[in-house]
Write a protein that binds this DNA or RNA. Structure first.
Lengths: 190, 190
DNA sequence: TCGCTTTTATGATATAGGTCAAAAATAAAT
DNA sequence: ATTTATTTTTGACCTATATCATAAAAGCGA
């Protein structure tokens, strides 16, 4: 679903409103592997992924890269806490393939929030969806075996599960990459 | 922090606005162990805990009670997805001690959202905070040892860690209650 | 197409923490 | 104040998965 459709599906904007809103965003194409936000820096923009996919990750105490979230086509991507509170980001944000995004700064977004109450609603809905997704993952991770976690991933994000490197997925699911490799090899032998 | 202070800290309401908003809420005292929402039912109200504490939990495949979240004094409590989307709740909501809450229905809240754009902002801020908290817990759970998870709990929710039963905390942290008991006995022997 | 780098697979071994069982301690009820 | 129920502790044992090591495969630049 493209950007305008995504917006209108959440809140019914008029054509004029929609145009004005779109004009506050900037469209940009981002090449594969580009880092949009660095850990410790402020996340200046909220991104909508028109085409492509990205992920957030951080480096743990052993400098190991841990995927925190995947963002697929048609989703908003940001280091939410950093963007909204202007705090240093705990995560890196990077694009995993050539992508097209719409981006907006906090200042411009605040202009939209002030101008259109419906935008506040949009913001609330988008964040509510994120919250639901994170809670779902949490429940999936918390008490399930590695096998079950991978099944959750296949069910919830089939597109991502088949496109992203095994190491990224393993860290996202909280398991060693060797474990995920073994799970997959079980699958293919049956 | 009490209800009015919490509201004005997030968004600067005028006295008149604040009064009007408060009038849409109902104050209620809830006795210990009362269940506010049942799994599978719609969560009809958003609660603010003026005094006391609650938790959300669900029963897993083995009918084991798993704590999903704790809500302390001064926090909003709800089965967010159920409340906002009018979907059956995945969780029970219960009060862990005699409490005083302010509650509001979705209908009345929508009236407030429509009337005061600032309320939309309030909603967005509250949910953003929840999102941040859940993401923090997810990171704590995903790659940390049982010991580290408990330390996270002590740091993040010291009040709760010392008041709630060991079994509730263990399931919240994704470990067997025996494990948490052993961790605690290590602590007290040093 | 060849060499170089990164990713994935597989085997051997170690361990954190789960499960089962039973006792001890606390809390609740009559 | 006793009994009953619930929660916590402790011990013995076991298993899923991490870790370490190395090989195979895939991807990529020159």
């Amino acid at each position: 679903m493209n950007f305008t459709d995504t917006l209108t599906a959440l809140v019914p904007f008029s054509d004029d409103e929609l145009n004005d809103i779109l004009n506050h965003f900037t469209m940009k194409s981002v090449p594969k592997n580009e880092t949009l936000v660095h850990q410790g820096k402020i996340c200046k923009y909220l991104y909508f992924i028109e085409q492509g996919m990205g992920r957030s990750y951080y480096l743990n105490d052993n400098q190991k890269d841990i995927t925190q979230w995947f963002f697929g086509t048609g989703k908003f991507m940001s280091s939410a806490d950093s963007f909204f509170q202007k705090k240093p980001s705990l995560y890196y944000l990077e694009v995993l393939e050539d992508s097209i995004v719409y981006l907006i700064s906090k200042e411009k977004l605040d202009v939209l929030f002030a101008k259109y109450p419906k935008m506040e609603k949009l913001g609330r809905l988008v964040i509510t969806e994120m919250l639901t997704n994170v809670v779902n993952k949490l429940n999936a991770i918390q008490f399930q075996t590695a096998r079950e976690r991978y099944d959750y991933m296949l069910a919830e994000f089939p597109d991502i599960a088949y496109q992203v490197s095994l190491g990224h997925i393993a860290s996202y699911l909280g398991m060693a990459q060797e474990t995920l490799s073994r799970i997959r090899s079980q699958d293919s032998s049956n």
